[in-house]
Design a protein around this nucleic acid. Structure first.
Lengths: 350, 350
DNA sequence: GCAATTAGTCAACAGTGTTGTTTTAATAAT
DNA sequence: ATTATTAAAACAACACTGTTGACTAATTGC
């Protein structure tokens, strides 16, 4: 519903987004946002009154009155984020700047069911929320494996787990935790993390998550793209080798199958080459200018994967593709889940 | 720059978009747009004053005052659209409803250079604009092969043509035609056509254009996705067969190479199967719920391609993927180019 | 005929960003 | 030192958005 409230929320989010990358001045905010200096002044002063921003010194740029520096009060809003893996639950506390300020990891029992999971989550969440003022904690995000529906928070199925068919995870967790909860695919939360932290700089990107599975998070035109059913990013089951090795999905020659086969044989060069080739195809298809690598496999052999992907990037004379490892490391999915919560309060409205 | 003018333009576009699919009432517009009845009334009455809409009868829905039907005055705005193929130039005239109301085709000399092309275009355009009132004709759109930059209208290179390096096609055409010109990739204009005509109904779709090349137009979250350099949709050079047949692009096993090889051998089943498999991978990757098939190859064997794609769609129990042939047939690229012009005037602002 | 119901408009309004002007605080010139 | 110049930021008035609330118009059902 595009009305005045929407407009205000949108511009607030734009301005706040520009403050995440470091101290800026009102003038710079006006230039980068396209708003007039007067509008920026109003917005900024309201945010100062709300305790979201503080003035912190001045910057002199030649003659004239010096510009006033503005700094984001990062701990004005905090959120918890969880990553669920086959054997492990990770919860992090992230602030408005997108920095991880606390972290906890706990093992998950093999083949855990929904009640068991919610209890394990509650234990970690309750421990981590203790030192946080209640009015600062905005909620809990959960990065889960798909297929799921992020709008309703229902997990349709979780591959490799039993008892996870059409589970209303968001509702269950909200009731147990007494906090707002959002649920999204792990690849989506991971790309939310990168987007939240890098802002305008990152408009078109793929985040490649290489673990036991192979998924991508898509950032297209500055927005996380989830597809018609929150299910975009199923990258692992793209056919790359007609009549290739059989895959768990029932088909043959999937990227994931070829990659995992090579990895299982200890053939690192082969494993990275397949990922590099597939990512190159993806970059060509979507014309993104950023690739962010993440996931256990990548973090255990960062140079090999980075080099393999870089080697296969399409050569373009006027805008090279930036390939790198996520600076958030193992936290990226959980941290992104937290930032998903932050973005519900301080991000662009829809 | 999100300001009040933007807000108004946006809501105008939403309302106008809802009138394209047939007669609607103010009440229905309010329901579907999320705006209040009062806001819709204001917008609609302004559009009636502008000659964009007319009241056309009433519809009775039980007790109470009957609803007034509104009809789009389709010829209130018209645009020309051109498709450039290796040997042929096609120009169509499209109206605000997205219907093609006139059409002309002319051969292009082998290996035409930019001046030759602009002259051929001007000849067709001048002939077709003659009967159109000057103030109704909004401009000319050109669907070209990439790589190009749709923002500047510069064609970087045109595969198979010489003399087409960094050609400012938009500027050249604007000077010769004396009309506003927009340039975009053929796959993008084609998907614009589908989006413009089907509106809200079509939010996430891929348009697959099978000609001598194989490209896709991407409609993601209701917007045409062009990528960081207007170059998204390079689908033909996705690897589908490691160590497959060599491709014109220099690599091996590209979808396009495998497809064209099969087609050249007269192996229709093989050709359609490759496309079906590749499209299924794409649908899975992007989680779109609509596939639109277009292009010479598809239109010459519509049933075979449709069946091959449908057969490989992922089976999803709650939201099936709709696969169909474009109703615009051979005109889709040119018509979309025209609608791209219309959307600059009557579409959602950016 | 009259009440009920629904469509549509009119009027007043809150709140957005913009335009135009003034105040504030630096540097540069006298 | 003093003054002029420059640029940042705030202040004031404004145009215009969609919303809220009240009212009128046109139909159905009894």
């Amino acid at each position: 519903m595009p009305n005045l409230r929407f407009l205000r929320g949108y511009n607030d989010a734009v301005v706040l987004g520009l403050t995440r990358s470091g101290a800026v001045t009102r003038v710079e905010l006006a230039e980068r946002s396209g708003l007039t200096p007067q509008a920026v002044s109003k917005i900024v002063n309201r945010m100062i009154a709300d305790g979201l921003l503080v003035e912190s010194g001045t910057r002199n740029v030649g003659v004239g009155k010096p510009r006033t520096l503005l700094r984001l009060v990062a701990d004005r809003g905090l959120a918890l984020g969880a990553q669920v893996e086959r054997d492990e639950l990770r919860v992090v506390l992230a602030d408005l700047a997108g920095d991880v300020v606390d972290r906890a990891v706990a093992p998950l029992p093999r083949g855990f069911d929904p009640p068991t999971f919610v209890e394990a989550l509650a234990e970690l969440v309750d421990r981590m929320r203790a030192p946080v003022p209640a009015d600062r904690l905005l909620g809990v995000g959960i990065g889960f494996v798909g297929p799921l529906d992020h709008r309703t928070g229902v997990v349709h199925d979780a591959t490799g787990l039993i008892g996870w068919h059409d589970v209303p995870l968001r509702a269950l967790a909200e009731r147990r935790l007494g906090l707002p909860v959002v649920v999204d695919k792990d690849t989506n939360t991971a790309v939310v993390a990168e987007s939240w932290r890098r802002g305008e700089q990152l408009r078109d990107a793929v985040l490649v998550l290489v673990g036991t599975g192979l998924g991508v998070g898509l950032l297209l035109d500055g927005q996380v793209y989830r597809g018609a059913r929150t299910n975009a990013g199923e990258f692992g089951h793209t056919t790359i080798q007609l009549d290739g090795p059989p895959c768990v999905c029932g088909r043959t020659g999937c990227v994931e199958a070829v990659h995992n086969l090579a990895a299982a044989r200890g053939d690192l060069a082969g494993a990275t080459a397949v990922v590099g080739l597939a990512v190159a195809d993806l970059v060509q298809l979507l014309d993104v200018d950023h690739v962010v690598l993440a996931g256990r496999a990548v973090l255990s052999e960062p140079e090999a994967y980075t080099a393999a992907v870089r080697a296969r990037m399409p050569v373009d004379d006027w805008l090279p593709v930036d390939v790198g490892i996520t600076p958030l490391g193992d936290d990226v999915v959980a941290a992104g889940a937290a930032m998903l919560v932050l973005s519900e309060f301080y991000g662009r409205p829809r």
